[in-house]
Amino acid sequence: MPLANTPTSVPVVVDEDKCIADKGCTVCVDVCPLDVLRISDLTGKAYMKYDECWYCMPCEADCPTNAVTVNIPYLLR
């Protein structure tokens, strides 16, 4: 059985102009309890790879450049 890709709109959004992951920062990836953030090979910026979010906010609170915003997942809003 092949696997399908079901789209979801992710709650964690990264402002790529502010994100300094391309300069070596990994703070948001490091602190996420669910380990759902990654640095993109294409852009060098952080992004939410897995939609498995507790909307708990360490990624936003600990980001040194205020690049991360945690939204409430659509299904809960």
């Binding site: 309890p33 669910l34 498995e52 979010c53 507790w54 909307y55 708990c56 997942p73 299904l75 809960l76």
Partner: peptide, 13 residues
């Protein structure tokens, strides 16, 4: 009940 698997009361980790 939201259906969001990680929207639990406890930290879902």
């Amino acid at each position: 009940t939201s259906g969001y698997m990680y929207g639990t009361y406890e930290n879902p980790t």
